[in-house]
């Protein structure tokens, strides 16, 4: 039964698993962006006149917080579409 699994199949299967596991990193940016948006909403509620500045700062901070998630996305894409492990077989 186990002998039917080829080396390529094994590498591909675990690469797909690894891509999925890598995307768990999406949790962090989600929480961070949510905190930033919540604080932004609170700031606008306290001082509605500064809505433009608050929105700009919030979007900038969120974009920086998103970076770690995008690193994991890059790793997931590499594992799925440009797999470096297949060349090692």
């Amino acid at each position: 039964m186990m002998s039917q699994i080829t080396n390529e199949g094994l590498v591909l299967a675990f690469s797909a698993l690894g891509a999925g596991i890598a995307m768990i990193a999406g949790l962090g940016p989600g929480i961070g962006q949510g905190i930033a948006a919540g604080q932004g909403a609170a700031a606008v509620g306290r001082n509605p006149g500064a809505k433009g500045d608050v929105t700009t700062t919030m979007l900038l901070g969120q974009a920086v917080a998103e970076t770690t998630g995008l690193y994991s996305l890059a790793i997931a894409f590499i594992l799925l579409f440009a797999n470096p492990l297949l060349g090692r077989l």
Binding site: A63, E66, T67, L70, Y71, L73, A74, F77
Partner: peptide, 16 residues
């Protein structure tokens, strides 16, 4: 690296 990866990742994820 972070400047370029941020832009690349966002646009690529949208494209995909």
């Amino acid at each position: 690296l972070s400047l370029s990866l941020r832009l690349f990742g966002n646009v690529l994820s949208g494209t995909v």
